[in-house]
Design a protein around this nucleic acid. Structure first.
Lengths: 233, 233
DNA sequence: AATCGTCAAGAGCAGTGCTCTCGTTTTTTC
DNA sequence: GAAAAAACGAGAGCACTGCTCTTGACGATT
């Protein structure tokens, strides 16, 4: 079966892709709630029930789009990271921040699917977790490498992470190997801070408040980077 | 008309409240997408079309719930702030953080309505902005008072806010009067950081990652507070 | 060549938001 | 106090949704 894909399998793969493409376009224009299997079928010249041969339910289609979204975002973040000199950790962090923001602004509805509120009645299955961690993995790598290289000079802020959190720190260390507890939690704060900003911007919370979004964002990203001890070169 | 409310006006107000109450219950159990005017009507023993006498569309019902939500969250945050000694700025900040998180965890679907992705095809009307700013107003007040009292010792992080952002800083100063530009943007970073965390937790991003959510959150809140120069007493 | 699995099509079910009309009731106006 | 006006609940109906089931045709496998 691995050898020669039958014609049927080929056309099936093509139709599946066509469905997700149309669905992604609908998603981009209408948003997650406006995604309609019937409309997709209509646009394909199919009858609505035929779609169910390819996606057993609307949620399964959504899941496919979500996985695609995680991968697209992950790829964008990875590319951005690779575009900076490996030793310029502050620059890499900033590049990652902009990659996340740029991608989110370019694909607001897909971003919403990933980091916005869960779709009504839908809950992400396990299939998504593999793709979900790609962006944060990049961040963890930067932080771990910067720490290992001794390039971090984190400011001496008040409270170190209490010992009670060491178990969670150990979990998080999978993504940031070798990093001490306190810095792990700073990293967590930094990461959620990044997405907090992007959420606010994508969801329109800055509508009448901030004009220079990119400038303010960069300022925020730099501040968060400084929190980790990342010094611009 | 202000004098004697007619019987009709009274029953109208009561029915309106009953509708929003039932809708809020539905929202709590089903989520935003599962909110159905027909279901509300059914539960009230009314015919579905009658609801439209009170709310001209589903979006208007949602708007009412959103305004209620902003007010509930605003009240919770204000109460939390008042529960701390006025001079203990770090304590007030921490109390506000926990108030936001506690309210969000207690009313996840309402929180989603406020800070999650916008509901499909729905965009918040102007009516909401009055209630929307209550929580951030509390934060701005704490920061402004702390600065005025000379209680802030913000760490010397790398980049001060560039002059290009001074216009936006001036806007934000409405909420944090007297605070210098750089601190205003640190405040913005702090605030978005808080909601970034809460979003991650409410939307299930921490599901298999963090066990001690409250502890980790507090660590993050303290770190963000330290970023502002808030020193615990 | 016959069989078996896959497929598109169509009808149909239950549900949705929303509109319109039709009597009835309440409020306002004269 | 009677007449006009406004508000109201009920009901039918439209267009739409996700989803299921059945039917008949096509393609792949033995």
């Amino acid at each position: 079966m691995t050898a020669s894909r039958t014609a049927r399998e080929r056309v099936r793969a093509e139709l599946t892709k066509e469905i997700t493409d149309i669905a992604r376009r609908q998603l981009a224009t209408e948003g997650a709630g406006g995604l309609s299997l019937r409309a997709v079928a209509r646009e394909m010249g199919m009858v609505s029930s035929a779609i169910y041969r390819y996606f057993p339910s609307r949620d399964d289609l959504l899941t496919a789009l979500i996985i695609d979204g995680y991968n697209a975002l992950g790829t964008a973040v990875e590319r951005a990271d690779e575009g900076s000199p490996p030793g310029d950790f502050a620059g890499r962090w900033l590049a990652v921040c902009h990659a996340v923001r740029d991608w989110a602004l370019a694909h607001p509805h897909e971003y919403t699917l990933l980091y916005g509120s869960p779709v009504p009645g839908y809950q992400a299955p396990e299939d998504t977790i593999a793709a979900r961690v790609r962006d944060v993995a990049v961040f963890g790598r930067i932080l771990a490498q910067a720490y290992e290289a001794g390039a971090l000079a984190p400011p001496d802020l008040a409270p170190p992470a209490p010992a009670a959190l060491s178990a969670d720190a150990a979990n998080l260390r999978e993504i940031m190997p070798g990093v001490p507890d306190d810095l792990i939690f700073r990293g967590l704060t930094t990461w959620t801070g990044l997405y907090g900003w992007v959420n606010f911007e994508v969801f329109g919370q800055f509508e009448n408040t901030i004009q220079d979004r990119r400038g303010s964002f960069e300022q925020s990203a730099r501040t968060l980077g400084a929190l980790l001890g990342l010094k611009p070169e």
